[in-house]
């Protein structure tokens, strides 16, 4: 698929997805978009991820296939790199925590260039790491901040997050730093696919679709907070009715809210079937979550079955007479 089509198709798909709730609410289907769709998306999200994880768990990983990024544990006088080549489960836990929270493997990202004729050179390339970290952490903090709509009274950590996030006290309502950072990070993550020729070549619609979906989600949320405000008391009434399993839809929430909710629902439902499953998959990466202890511990293949062997002794026992007849040497007479 050409690069233009890879961008255009998901863009059109997301624009259509934005129009669906706008038209649907006009037609009086607000119950469908406020209750049925979010519940369905939540169930698909949970069920889908569960199926994925169980499917992964059913595949045996008999041998240690750790990617080693440092010195393996060896003699006492050789310095062991504990977190890049873990030996115990505790060290694996630290390695996984660094991977999940700090994207350590992305930090090692390199770029390769041919310079001054046929000279191959490698350089550090940290921008992707920075963009990814900025995006994921902003998204996580924004998700936590949204807990103010789902709990009554609002838990204390939300208050703390809002204070830190609104630290600069810019504008009214106060600008949240994460809102600005997530837009910048998404813009970077999109532009790198468009600008860098190699990335443009390998980028598929399934790379652009989640990006556009996230843009829709984030921009509709920012729009609701800063520009085209909706009645958030009613939004919380709806959210609380959903989580107490007594769904009621208050009248007169702005259409922008339905766009936001629909984007979120699509994102949730899309999660288990796309590259976004890396959220669960990162925990089950055998190249990261295994201790590199093959030299100390025997790992037996679980699908080994008792092999029927026919030893030479038994063979000679069976054919001794015939072997003697044709003059073949035998070990026992």
């Amino acid at each position: 698929m050409s690069a233009q089509k890879s961008i255009l198709y998901p863009l059109v798909a997301v624009l259509v997805l934005i129009l669906i709730p706008v038209i649907g609410v006009k037609l009086g289907l607000s119950y469908f978009f406020a209750v049925v769709v979010p519940y369905a998306a939540f169930i698909i999200f949970f069920g889908g991820i569960l199926c994925k994880v169980i499917n992964w768990a059913r595949s045996p990983v008999p041998f240690r296939i750790t990617t080693t990024c440092g010195q393996e544990k060896s003699f006492d006088w050789v310095k062991h790199n504990k977190f890049d080549n873990p030996f115990t489960n505790g060290q694996v836990a630290v390695r996984m925590a660094l991977e999940v929270l700090c994207f350590r493997s992305l930090f090692r990202n390199l770029k390769m260039e041919l310079r001054d004729g046929p000279k191959l050179s490698y350089g550090s390339a940290k921008w992707l790491w920075l963009g990814a970290l900025a995006f994921h952490w902003s998204f996580f903090i924004i998700l936590l901040r949204h807990m103010r709509f789902f709990a009554q009274p609002v838990p204390g950590f939300v208050d703390m997050l809002q204070n830190v996030d609104g630290f600069f006290e810019l504008g009214l309502p106060q600008l949240f730093v994460t809102d600005a950072v997530i837009v910048a990070a998404l813009t970077y993550l999109f532009l790198r696919r468009v600008v860098v020729p190699q990335l443009r070549y390998i980028s598929l619609p399934s790379d652009y679709f989640p990006l556009f979906l996230l843009f829709g989600l984030v921009l509709s949320g920012i729009g609701m907070r800063y520009f085209f405000r909706v009645d958030i008391v009613k939004v919380k009434e709806l959210a609380m009715s959903l989580v107490t399993l007594k769904p009621t839809v208050p009248e007169g929430i702005g259409a922008l809210f339905y766009v936001h909710l629909f984007m979120l629902s699509v994102l949730f439902a899309y999660f288990p079937f796309s590259k976004l499953t890396h959220m669960a998959g990162v925990f089950l990466s055998p190249t990261r979550n295994l201790a590199n202890n093959s030299r100390y511990k025997r790992h037996v293949n679980p699908w080994d079955y008792p092999v029927k062997v026919h030893t030479y002794e038994e063979y000679e026992e069976e054919f001794r007479e015939k072997m003697k007849e044709v003059g073949l040497p035998v070990e026992k007479e």
């Binding site: 949970f46 789902f150 009554q152 989580v243 107490t244 669960a280 925990f283």
Partner: peptide, 24 residues
């Protein structure tokens, strides 16, 4: 692992379990 993830993701549901939401 699955159970921990399920508890975390269903946080709003069990936090409000059996409570009635009172609008202001």
């Amino acid at each position: 692992g699955i159970l921990i993830a399920a508890v975390i993701f269903s946080f709003p549901f069990w936090l409000n379990f059996g409570k009635a939401a009172v609008p202001p």
